[in-house]
């Protein structure tokens, strides 16, 4: 890239143990969060589509399981976002340490 002053040895940076460990922890979080949220989210159309009678059960006054489960998806999305952002700000510091010689 044109804004690089001196050539960066990308392979050396990538091979640093602390970078490898950062990437593997990040990837593990992203993969498990993705599996969880996809399963939680797709459970909604599956339950609503194939088990409608169960989902019509009223639990809070007239409010049924279907609506509560749908509303919980919003909460689920916000919680995952919150967890990710908290972890990511710690990762930012580790990433900055990996490339500190290049700034």
């Amino acid at each position: 890239m044109s804004d690089q002053k001196s050539p960066v040895n990308w392979d050396a940076l990538e091979a640093k143990p602390e970078f490898r460990s950062l990437v593997s922890r990040k990837t593990r979080f992203i993969v498990s969060a993705t599996i969880f949220f996809m399963a939680y989210y797709l459970a909604l159309p599956v339950l609503v589509g194939w088990f409608p009678e169960l989902m019509k059960t009223q639990v809070l006054g007239k409010v049924n399981i279907a609506y509560i489960f749908a509303l919980s998806q919003f909460l689920m999305a916000w919680i995952i976002a919150f967890m990710y952002v908290r972890k990511a700000s710690a990762w930012d510091k580790e990433a900055a340490a990996v490339i500190k010689d290049h700034h």
């Binding site: 992203i30 949220f37 999305a77």
Partner: peptide, 21 residues
Amino acid sequence: GYDGFMYSVGFLVAYITVLLV
């Protein structure tokens, strides 16, 4: 009714992919 609300759910949950990936 409810089936229309499913769009609302999907449109938000989609942003987890945007955020994480």
